[in-house]
Write a protein that binds this DNA or RNA. Structure first.
Lengths: 129, 129, 129, 129
DNA sequence: GTGGTCTAGACCACC
DNA sequence: GTGGTCTAGACCACA
């Protein structure tokens, strides 16, 4: 796994790690029960404070995306999210709305945005719960 | 116009104001050359420091979304963004990807996300540059 | 780096800071990835409120001239502007026109202005995008 | 004379009027001893508060660019600026520097800026003092 | 220790 | 009356 951390980004480093691990999973490059790097390994690789990595893993664990087994490491969780269908829709639609508003504000045509989104969806693996 | 500010949100107050004004415009509830509330009006209504409102308006102005005329107020701009086509695509696709990853992580089917997005797009007014 | 702030100037303090940092970069005295003084350092040195320095840095960041990394400081950016070619030409030609009108008004000969400008251009480092 | 006032500009209205009258003179569209519109006329034409026009004329008079003869109106002055050669150079070179720094910052090549400036200079009438 | 957010309040420029 | 500038100071997020 190669992560690209942009310390100049508007997003904090721990958030970028969370997003990129989620992305690896969505892309199918990380599967259920796969082991993800230890905090120390990733910290060494990215030349980042281990506390920052630990914070990212803690968030992923709270969201049910990974599980940590003391003594053996951190693994991609098999279980789906524990959130209700409504809560999920709110989360996803909130982000979709922000993207749509951004596109409308930048005067991009509806068909163009729609095409861009289909292309992006094609890159990820979607499996129903 | 009624804005809902959530001071416990993960997003700062000024960002919420920026997003909600962009949304009003994208929804067509605010049109070109319409006047938006004065800094002091909105500050009084939301019980927020005027500087915070002013910061939101400044950001909107820098993005070319509103224009301010000292002495008369702040108005929705007619002009489009001055960003290059590439910069726009990067901005929008970044947000679309985050939404797509979120959906995949939450195990929502591709067709469902796609439908949600089409519904959302239908709510907004898109006009090409 | 020594900045000269003139609080009696027609230009606001934060603008003077923005202009002087741009100038340092254009002169080649600040290079890509160089660290510029921290907000608190510069505030202490110039005896100015830190918020005023922060405002200047925020503007520089919005123009893509510096990047800030919370926790480590503010650095000169490597990336170029994201403005369209037209927007750039409008910005620069607007300033050139004002200078030309000023020269004509003050009855300075065209060749003199031209020579002055060439001398000034010689002081700065120009690198195409 | 037709002035284009942009009330959304970063420059105040009175400044725009000052600049545009200087520009008309530099373009040769207003000559020495020509009468410029009365405050009331211009205020009516631009739909602007007469005080704003009066402020612009006051500034032009202070700079020796127009003279007001009570009872007959305001006229383009024949006399040149009363400023010393050094003061003039400082004024003009300050503006040229700002334009050069802007160009360098926007990564425009030196030859391009130089060409733009020559084109602009060609539009104006320069007469030595 | 870095910058970011928000508040409170004074003063100013513009119209 | 409009927004803009600047100050002073508290508190927070990030690394």
């Amino acid at each position: 796994m190669y992560f690209a951390i942009n310390s100049a980004s508007e997003f904090p480093v721990y958030q970028q790690i969370v997003d990129q691990i989620k992305r690896e999973i969505a892309l199918g490059r990380l599967s259920c029960t796969d082991k993800i790097p230890t905090v120390r390994e990733l910290a060494a690789q990215l030349i980042i404070n281990p506390n920052t990595i630990a914070k990212a893993y803690r968030i992923l664990e709270q969201q049910g995306i990974v599980v940590t087994r003391v003594g053996s490491g951190t693994f991609v969780s098999e279980a789906g999210s524990s959130l209700s269908q409504d809560a999920r829709k709110t989360l996803v639609c909130g982000k979709l709305e922000l993207a749509a508003v951004e596109a409308a504000t930048l005067r991009i045509s509806k068909t163009t945005v729609s095409e861009w989104f289909e292309t992006i969806l094609g890159k990820f693996m979607f499996r129903e719960a």
